[in-house]
Computed example of a mutant assay.
Amino acid sequence: MIDSYRSIGEEVQAKVVRKKSRFIALCYPVSSIEQVETLLEQARHTYHDASHRCYAYRLLGDDAPIEYSSDAGEPAGSAGLPILQQIQKAGLYDVLVIVVRYFGGTKLGIGGLIHAYGDMAAEAITAARIVIKKQEIRLSLSFPPEISSAVMSLIHRHPARVEDVRYEQSAHVLVALPPSAIERFKRELMEATGARASWEERHD
Protein backbone atom coordinates (compact mmCIF):
# COMPACT_ATOMS: atom_id res chain seq x y z
CA MET A 1 0.00 0.00 0.00
CA ILE A 2 1.58 3.25 -1.16
CA ASP A 3 1.47 6.54 0.75
CA SER A 4 0.30 8.72 -2.15
CA TYR A 5 -0.63 8.52 -5.82
CA ARG A 6 -1.54 10.69 -8.81
CA SER A 7 -5.12 11.10 -9.99
CA ILE A 8 -7.28 13.84 -11.53
CA GLY A 9 -9.32 16.48 -9.75
CA GLU A 10 -12.49 16.57 -11.83
CA GLU A 11 -14.12 15.48 -15.08
CA VAL A 12 -12.67 16.85 -18.32
CA GLN A 13 -13.60 16.49 -21.99
CA ALA A 14 -11.76 16.76 -25.29
CA LYS A 15 -13.21 16.76 -28.80
CA VAL A 16 -11.68 16.37 -32.25
CA VAL A 17 -12.70 15.41 -35.81
CA ARG A 18 -10.39 13.03 -37.66
CA LYS A 19 -11.16 11.95 -41.25
CA LYS A 20 -14.81 12.91 -40.73
CA SER A 21 -15.12 10.77 -37.57
CA ARG A 22 -16.00 12.80 -34.50
CA PHE A 23 -14.28 11.77 -31.25
CA ILE A 24 -15.23 12.85 -27.72
CA ALA A 25 -12.97 11.88 -24.82
CA LEU A 26 -14.38 11.89 -21.28
CA CYS A 27 -11.96 11.62 -18.36
CA TYR A 28 -13.37 10.99 -14.87
CA PRO A 29 -11.96 10.57 -11.36
CA VAL A 30 -13.36 7.33 -9.90
CA SER A 31 -12.91 5.36 -6.70
CA SER A 32 -14.68 2.04 -7.34
CA ILE A 33 -15.82 -0.34 -10.07
CA GLU A 34 -19.42 0.51 -9.10
CA GLN A 35 -18.75 4.16 -9.91
CA VAL A 36 -17.16 3.13 -13.21
CA GLU A 37 -20.26 1.12 -14.13
CA THR A 38 -22.53 4.07 -13.28
CA LEU A 39 -20.53 6.43 -15.51
CA LEU A 40 -20.46 3.89 -18.35
CA GLU A 41 -24.24 3.57 -18.14
CA GLN A 42 -24.57 7.36 -18.24
CA ALA A 43 -22.35 7.47 -21.34
CA ARG A 44 -24.46 4.76 -23.01
CA HIS A 45 -27.54 6.88 -22.40
CA THR A 46 -26.03 10.25 -23.34
CA TYR A 47 -24.22 8.97 -26.45
CA HIS A 48 -26.72 6.27 -27.41
CA ASP A 49 -26.37 7.17 -31.09
CA ALA A 50 -22.56 6.89 -31.16
CA SER A 51 -20.83 4.25 -33.27
CA HIS A 52 -18.52 3.19 -30.42
CA ARG A 53 -17.97 3.98 -26.74
CA CYS A 54 -14.53 2.57 -25.95
CA TYR A 55 -13.00 2.91 -22.51
CA ALA A 56 -10.34 1.97 -20.00
CA TYR A 57 -9.97 2.43 -16.28
CA ARG A 58 -7.22 2.06 -13.73
CA LEU A 59 -7.95 1.81 -10.00
CA LEU A 60 -5.34 1.77 -7.27
CA GLY A 61 -6.15 -1.61 -5.69
CA ASP A 62 -4.69 -2.94 -2.44
CA ASP A 63 -1.73 -4.86 -3.84
CA ALA A 64 -1.75 -4.10 -7.58
CA PRO A 65 -3.60 -1.80 -9.99
CA ILE A 66 -7.05 -2.90 -11.16
CA GLU A 67 -7.05 -2.29 -14.91
CA TYR A 68 -9.53 -3.00 -17.68
CA SER A 69 -10.08 -1.85 -21.25
CA SER A 70 -12.81 -2.37 -23.83
CA ASP A 71 -12.68 -1.96 -27.61
CA ALA A 72 -16.51 -1.81 -27.72
CA GLY A 73 -16.78 -3.22 -31.22
CA GLU A 74 -13.64 -1.68 -32.71
CA PRO A 75 -10.95 -4.14 -33.93
CA ALA A 76 -9.25 -5.94 -31.02
CA GLY A 77 -6.51 -3.87 -29.41
CA SER A 78 -7.22 -0.76 -31.47
CA ALA A 79 -9.13 1.33 -28.93
CA GLY A 80 -9.33 0.25 -25.29
CA LEU A 81 -5.66 -0.68 -24.93
CA PRO A 82 -4.32 2.61 -26.38
CA ILE A 83 -6.58 4.46 -23.93
CA LEU A 84 -5.28 2.38 -21.01
CA GLN A 85 -1.68 2.90 -22.09
CA GLN A 86 -2.13 6.67 -21.90
CA ILE A 87 -3.47 6.38 -18.34
CA GLN A 88 -0.47 4.22 -17.44
CA LYS A 89 1.96 6.58 -19.17
CA ALA A 90 0.63 9.49 -17.10
CA GLY A 91 1.10 7.45 -13.91
CA LEU A 92 -2.54 7.91 -12.91
CA TYR A 93 -4.81 5.83 -10.72
CA ASP A 94 -8.54 6.00 -9.99
CA VAL A 95 -9.25 7.25 -13.50
CA LEU A 96 -11.79 6.25 -16.16
CA VAL A 97 -11.43 7.44 -19.76
CA ILE A 98 -14.24 6.92 -22.27
CA VAL A 99 -13.70 7.80 -25.92
CA VAL A 100 -16.88 8.13 -27.96
CA ARG A 101 -16.71 7.84 -31.75
CA TYR A 102 -19.23 8.95 -34.33
CA PHE A 103 -18.18 7.25 -37.58
CA GLY A 104 -17.89 9.72 -40.43
CA GLY A 105 -17.78 7.31 -43.35
CA THR A 106 -14.01 7.03 -43.80
CA LYS A 107 -12.25 4.01 -42.30
CA LEU A 108 -9.11 4.84 -40.32
CA GLY A 109 -7.52 1.38 -40.37
CA ILE A 110 -6.20 -0.33 -37.24
CA GLY A 111 -3.11 1.89 -37.08
CA GLY A 112 -5.22 5.00 -37.48
CA LEU A 113 -7.62 3.85 -34.77
CA ILE A 114 -4.77 3.16 -32.35
CA HIS A 115 -3.43 6.67 -32.87
CA ALA A 116 -6.86 8.28 -32.74
CA TYR A 117 -7.99 6.64 -29.50
CA GLY A 118 -4.59 7.04 -27.85
CA ASP A 119 -4.35 10.69 -28.88
CA MET A 120 -7.84 11.44 -27.60
CA ALA A 121 -7.11 9.87 -24.22
CA ALA A 122 -3.82 11.78 -24.00
CA GLU A 123 -5.52 15.06 -24.87
CA ALA A 124 -8.15 14.63 -22.15
CA ILE A 125 -5.55 13.59 -19.57
CA THR A 126 -3.36 16.57 -20.47
CA ALA A 127 -6.32 18.90 -19.91
CA ALA A 128 -7.04 17.40 -16.48
CA ARG A 129 -5.90 18.91 -13.20
CA ILE A 130 -3.53 16.42 -11.61
CA VAL A 131 -3.91 15.91 -7.86
CA ILE A 132 -1.85 13.96 -5.35
CA LYS A 133 -4.03 11.79 -3.13
CA LYS A 134 -2.66 10.62 0.19
CA GLN A 135 -3.52 7.31 1.79
CA GLU A 136 -3.70 6.83 5.53
CA ILE A 137 -4.32 4.00 7.94
CA ARG A 138 -6.27 4.92 11.06
CA LEU A 139 -5.40 3.36 14.40
CA SER A 140 -7.56 3.54 17.51
CA LEU A 141 -5.16 3.43 20.47
CA SER A 142 -6.12 2.47 24.02
CA PHE A 143 -3.79 2.74 27.02
CA PRO A 144 -3.70 3.62 30.74
CA PRO A 145 -3.99 7.40 31.27
CA GLU A 146 -0.77 7.52 33.31
CA ILE A 147 1.34 6.74 30.22
CA SER A 148 -0.33 9.41 28.07
CA SER A 149 2.78 11.57 27.91
CA ALA A 150 4.86 8.70 26.52
CA VAL A 151 2.22 7.89 23.90
CA MET A 152 1.70 11.51 22.81
CA SER A 153 5.45 12.07 22.62
CA LEU A 154 5.76 9.06 20.34
CA ILE A 155 2.88 10.26 18.16
CA HIS A 156 4.54 13.66 17.68
CA ARG A 157 7.76 11.98 16.54
CA HIS A 158 5.91 10.24 13.71
CA PRO A 159 4.06 11.59 10.64
CA ALA A 160 0.80 10.99 12.50
CA ARG A 161 -2.37 13.04 12.44
CA VAL A 162 -4.42 13.02 15.66
CA GLU A 163 -8.16 12.86 14.95
CA ASP A 164 -9.60 12.36 18.42
CA VAL A 165 -8.53 12.14 22.07
CA ARG A 166 -10.77 10.83 24.88
CA TYR A 167 -10.04 10.09 28.51
CA GLU A 168 -12.28 7.63 30.34
CA GLN A 169 -11.13 4.70 32.46
CA SER A 170 -8.61 4.24 29.66
CA ALA A 171 -7.20 6.85 27.33
CA HIS A 172 -8.26 6.62 23.69
CA VAL A 173 -6.50 8.32 20.80
CA LEU A 174 -7.43 8.02 17.13
CA VAL A 175 -4.47 8.64 14.81
CA ALA A 176 -3.93 8.43 11.06
CA LEU A 177 -0.55 7.54 9.56
CA PRO A 178 0.90 6.87 6.10
CA PRO A 179 0.95 3.12 5.34
CA SER A 180 4.75 3.06 5.25
CA ALA A 181 4.92 4.32 8.86
CA ILE A 182 2.47 1.88 10.45
CA GLU A 183 4.71 -1.06 11.36
CA ARG A 184 7.45 1.10 12.85
CA PHE A 185 4.88 3.07 14.85
CA LYS A 186 3.32 -0.10 16.28
CA ARG A 187 6.73 -1.47 17.23
CA GLU A 188 7.84 1.73 18.93
CA LEU A 189 4.48 2.06 20.68
CA MET A 190 5.01 -1.33 22.30
CA GLU A 191 8.55 -0.38 23.32
CA ALA A 192 7.59 3.05 24.68
CA THR A 193 4.67 1.74 26.75
CA GLY A 194 6.03 -1.62 27.85
CA ALA A 195 3.30 -3.31 25.80
CA ARG A 196 0.61 -1.56 27.86
CA ALA A 197 -1.02 0.02 24.80
CA SER A 198 -3.28 -1.71 22.30
CA TRP A 199 -4.57 -0.67 18.90
CA GLU A 200 -7.25 -1.49 16.39
CA GLU A 201 -7.31 -0.50 12.73
CA ARG A 202 -10.36 1.58 11.86
CA HIS A 203 -12.01 1.42 8.44
CA ASP A 204 -15.12 3.53 9.09
Results as ranks from 00 to 15, higher is better:
G9K: 11
R166H: 14
V16Q: 14
L60A: 11
D3Q: 15
D164L: 15
G194S: 14
P159Y: 02
L59P: 01
P29S: 08
L84A: 13
M190V: 04
A43V: 13
V173H: 02
I110A: 09
I132W: 11
V175R: 01
I8C: 12
P179S: 08
L84Y: 02
D63G: 04
G109T: 01
G105I: 07
A127I: 02
D3L: 12
G112A: 12
H172T: 12
R58G: 04
H172M: 06
E188M: 08
I137E: 11
Q85R: 14
Y47E: 13
S32R: 07
L84V: 08
L26F: 08
A127E: 04
E67Y: 06
F103A: 09
I130L: 04
F185S: 12
R129T: 12
I33F: 01
I87H: 00
P145E: 07
T38A: 14
L26K: 07
L96V: 10
H52D: 13
V162L: 01
Y102A: 11
I8Q: 04
G194R: 07
A121R: 05
S70C: 15
L177N: 06
S7E: 09
S21L: 04
F143L: 03
V165W: 03
I155R: 04
L59N: 09
A195D: 15
V131W: 01
I137N: 05
I137F: 01
A192V: 13
P144Q: 03
L174N: 03
T46P: 00
P145C: 05
E191Y: 06
H48P: 11
S7Q: 02
E200W: 05
G104M: 08
L39S: 05
Q135A: 02
F103V: 12
G112I: 02
D62V: 09
P145H: 11
T126P: 00
D71C: 14
K134E: 11
T126Y: 02
A150L: 06
A79W: 03
T106C: 07
R166M: 15
A43G: 07
L177K: 06
E123T: 06
S170Q: 15
E183Q: 14
A197E: 02
E163K: 11
L108G: 03
E41K: 15
M152Y: 08
V16L: 14
V95H: 09
A192T: 06
G105D: 08
E200L: 11
D71T: 15
S69W: 02
C54P: 05
D63Q: 05
G9P: 13
A192E: 14
R53T: 07
